[in-house]
Design a protein around this nucleic acid. Structure first.
Lengths: 229, 229
DNA sequence: TCGATAATTTAGTCTAAGCTAATTTTCTGT
DNA sequence: ACAGAAAATTAGCTTAGACTAAATTATCGA
């Protein structure tokens, strides 16, 4: 019996830190103070202060000057917040017709206020989706996150046919632009060419040909083409 | 042109104080420190401190030792929060099947996090209701609140037929009990008898006869019977 | 391996919002 | 009209979370 001790009430800032630490730790194994500060838009000393408090509460393990990682309890709390965020994003687009470039900001606030019951009702109301509108997987109620390995569009071989799986959700303008280009999760694209020296990438999207820069292309994660829809 | 200067970002506690002050002021013309403290469940000196801050920000007018009332700006902010709260309550019951005894607590948290756009989308999705599930009127987008004069069931004459218009929304247990008795907004009831000395009141609800105490009866607001439904 | 730079932490402040204990003002009943 | 009760405020602390400036530790390049 895995002792599922309920995480007590966490403040909104604490939930934000845990979420960010989870993401950074997933990418790099450890989350650095400056990285956290940059992602949250706060000063580094503020992060040091929060790190101390989070460690005191057993949510993270901290090695001085060497970064932090989540404890089991911290990871559970992080996944709970991430689930809330993504369920809210999915619900807002599916049930309330929210445009996909604005759901992130709304979810960022609501995720700290919604009860588990509300999140579960929202998820049920829209058919328990597996991902949010940007393609990010939604952790399950019991804290499982299935995150299949994806590859940035920027590093796909020329000639390959791939499926857009996930795009960055933070920048509304970028999301509007991607929607304009038809680059949305689930879409099949073919890489037609890639200019050298970080040059633009040409894609076939449907019958249109689009060209995007490498910065944008690195924000787009793709996987193997899906079976005929 | 009525200068509609947008209320800047208010914290959740500030919104809570303004809401309570609005309600107390509506009932009594002025809101006292102790009343506010009691409604919010905080100590009186905490209220004094907040009163100072609210007055500094021009949200209330304060006469020392004499109570507080909202300024025009404060009233607008209060009505905005009340609209959010009630729209959320209505949405949760209508769109997500939330039981009416639990929407208050959920709305209490969400009202501070939801954007105006979300509130308007929710209201539109459920057909712009005029009241929340407990019968409280929903202020309009532009801050108008139509609050028809109602009378507590406790002070209705024996023999009168009245329409239940509104019930207290804070106590879940009380709400479940009222639902059991069939006492819900829109329901017609007849006062059969009232025992003297704050005694129980007998009601005809549908074809059932119910007896309720005066404490409960004073939480139930009624109006003239509606035209045949 | 040593010194510069980058990363991190410490020290010290600030604000919001809460608390208790003590004080002040207002009200009320005789 | 005044004494005691009730209401409100002040004084003084506490905590979370942010900040800047200064100090410390790591790391990387020559």
């Amino acid at each position: 019996m895995t002792s599922v001790k309920a995480v007590p009430v966490l403040t909104a800032p604490v939930e934000d830190y845990l979420k960010i630490i989870f993401e950074l730790e997933t990418r790099a194994g450890v989350a650095g103070t400056n990285e956290i500060a940059a992602k949250l838009g706060v000063a580094a000393p503020s992060v040091s202060g929060m790190i101390r408090r989070l460690a005191e509460h057993g949510l993270i393990a901290h090695e001085r000057y060497r970064g932090v990682r989540l404890t089991r309890t911290g990871r559970r709390a992080a996944l709970r917040t991430i689930r809330r965020h993504r369920v809210i994003e999915a619900y807002l687009t599916t049930a309330l017709g929210y445009p996909w470039d604005r759901v992130h900001a709304e979810a960022e606030r609501l995720e700290h206020a919604a009860s588990d019951e509300l999140i579960d009702r929202m998820a049920a109301a829209i058919g328990e989706p597996a991902t949010d509108p940007h393609g990010a997987p939604i952790p399950t109620r019991d804290g499982t996150l299935v995150d299949p390995p994806l590859v940035p569009l920027a590093s796909v071989d020329v000639g390959a046919r791939v499926c857009i799986e996930r795009v960055g959700d933070r920048d509304p303008e970028q999301l509007r632009y991607l929607a304009e280009l038809g680059i949305t999760p689930g879409r099949q694209v073919e890489v037609l060419s890639r200019a050298p020296y970080e040059g633009p990438i040409e894609l076939k999207v449907g019958r249109a040909v689009r060209s995007i820069g490498p910065a944008l292309a690195s924000q787009i994660l793709v996987g193997a083409p899906r079976a005929a829809r």
